[in-house]
Every structure is written in C-alpha cells, then in structure tokens.
C-alpha cells in the first residue's frame, strides 16, 4: 500500500470513529429523552415516590437534589475560592505548595465512592449525624472541591498580571487588588466553573448513598422551620436524591414501574444538566460582555 492510499484509509477510519462517537451520544440522549419524556408529567414531578406501587413521582427527590446542590455550593464555594486565591495569587514556589497541589490532584482522582465512604465513616458514624442532608452536602463538598478550586485558580490566573500591577501601583493592598480587581475580572470564568461543577454535583450518586441516605421521608413543604424534623429545610433528615433514586429503583427492583420511573427521572436529570451546561455558556458570555462592552 503506498503512502497516499494509507493516508486515505487512515482519514476514512478517523471519520468512521468520529461518526461512531457522535452516534453514541445521539443514541444516549435520544434514548433517554424518547423513553423518558413521555413519563414526565406534572403529576410525576409533583407527587411523592411509591415503593411498592406504580405511579410514584419524584417530587421529594428532585427537591432533595436541588437542596443538596445549594448546600454543597454554599459550603464548597468559599473554601474553593480561598484555595484558588492561595494557589493563583499567594502560593510561593516551595515544598508546601507542591504538597498541596499533589493533595488536590489526589483528591480529584479519588473514586467518589471512597469519598462517600469517608463521609459515611466520619460524619454519619463518628460525628453521629446519621444519614442526613448535611453529611451528604459535606461529602459532595469533598468531591467538588478539587475541581472547583482548579477552575477558580485557572480563571484567576487568566487575568493579566497588568491588572494586579495596576492595583498595587495605586497603593492598594494585595488583598484589595485580588478581591476588588482580579476577582471581578475573573468572574465570568468562575461562574462558568461553578455551574459546570453544579451539573456534576447534581448527577452524583455514589458519594451520597451512604451519606445522605437512600430514603426520602415525607416532609412538609409548608414548614419553614429548618430545625423542625418535618420541615423540608431540615438539614438533618435523610434525603434520597434523584440520581440515587434512579439507582435504587433499578437495583432493588420492588417498584413495579421501575423502568418508567428511571427513564422519566433520567430525562429530568439530563434536562437539568443540559440546562446547567447551557446556562454556564450563556452566563459566562453574558458576564464577559457586560464587563467589556459599553453599557
């Protein structure tokens, strides 16, 4: 075979592989949406789950997922921001920084089930929190921290050094330069990073099955007292999320319409994550435009 023919064959193979990958994605999305969307109805989204009967909904699971997401971001964003600022602005080139970077790499490559088990061991067992939203949010924070930290660090580093020099040369402290000049300039990137990490957190289940638990007790959506056991805001109650619910109905197999519920719930999950992805893109662009363009 001469080199020209080899070239053509190779190009053909590459096209074939690309088509296959695109095909896989189209199949995945198509399957979820086509099998799932018909099951999604107002009733499905607004009614409670059933264990042994058909016709259950996902109201509590959906709420739990969102609530956990919000709690997780509230806990992880400040820590990730502080760490990102350290790595991008303060970190000296020494062994401590090297060690920290390694630690973050290790944390990001740990299987989420290990992170979940650690949360289970420390918070559910040792601190006696029991299966609770709080334990789940903390476990998800561990899972979320390395990626969020890195994306914040990268966004901060993308801000040109000239901006820092401008602030410093006006007699501002480094801290004020970072918080007042560098951080706002990095905001579009940081926003995108947060939303993308939100998508990951929203779909995560392995870290949650032994921290937030696998049951969704009936809660009252009119009880706004977070310290009341029946309140939907109570962070100490166990909370099965949407992703965990999909896993559970499929593995326990006691729910008669498990297939319908999982496809409906998967569709909801995917749509929410797609929305997150779109929002990340849109919001990042919007914030960037707002910053640079004339008002």
């Amino acid at each position: 075979m001469n080199s020209k023919a080899a070239n053509n064959v190779a190009t053909g193979v590459i096209y074939l592989l690309v088509t296959a990958v695109v095909g896989i994605l189209i199949f995945l999305l198509g399957y979820i949406l086509i099998t799932g969307v018909p099951h999604v109805s107002i009733h499905f989204i607004t009614s409670a789950a059933e264990s042994f009967r058909a016709g259950g909904g996902i109201r509590d699971q959906l709420f739990n997922s969102l609530y956990l997401l919000v709690l997780t971001l509230i806990i992880s964003f400040p820590i990730a921001l502080g760490s990102g600022i350290y790595l991008s602005e303060y970190a000296p080139h020494n062994w401590f920084t090297g060690l920290i970077r390694t630690a973050i790499e290790v944390l990001s490559s740990l299987p989420s089930v290990v992170v979940g088990l650690f949360g289970y061991l420390l918070f559910v067992i040792k601190f006696n929190l029991g299966f609770s939203i709080l334990a789940g949010a903390i476990a998800l924070t561990f899972f979320n921290l390395p990626l969020l930290t890195r994306s914040i660090e990268e966004s901060l580093e993308d801000v040109p050094n000239l901006q820092r020099e401008a602030g410093l040369s006006l007699g501002l402290s480094r801290w004020k330069t970072i918080t007042g000049i560098v951080f706002p300039a990095a905001l579009p990137g940081i926003l995108t990073g947060i939303i993308l990490s939100a998508g990951r957190v929203f779909g995560e289940a392995a870290a949650l099955i032994y921290t937030a638990g696998q049951s969704a007790p009936t809660v009252s959506y009119t009880n706004w007292n977070p310290f009341s056991a029946a309140s939907f805001l109570n962070p100490m109650r166990p909370a099965e999320t949407l992703a965990v619910h999909i896993w559970k109905v499929n593995t326990e197999g006691v729910t008669p319409d498990a297939l319908q519920i999982s496809s409906g719930a998967s569709a909801v999950l995917i749509v929410v994550i797609l929305l997150f992805n779109l929002a990340a893109r849109f919001l990042g662009n919007w914030a960037f435009k707002k910053m640079t363009a004339a008002k």
Binding site: A166, S169, L170, G171, S173, G180, I181, T292
Partner: peptide, 28 residues
C-alpha cells in the same frame, strides 16, 4: 502601600480595570 500612594506608576501597556471609567478612578 504608602510608598505607592505617593509614587504612582503608569505601565507600558494600558491596563484599565474591567470596570466603568468612573470606577476606574474612584476604586482606589
């Protein structure tokens, strides 16, 4: 920081803050 309040610097490449014209001046 006090030194730089009295001895200020303009750089080779323009480096306004990503803020409004007014805020660029009032920020510091």
């Amino acid at each position: 920081y006090e030194v730089r309040k009295h001895i200020s610097m303009v750089f080779q490449r323009p480096n306004p803050f990503a803020k409004s014209i007014r805020e660029n001046i009032t920020f510091a």
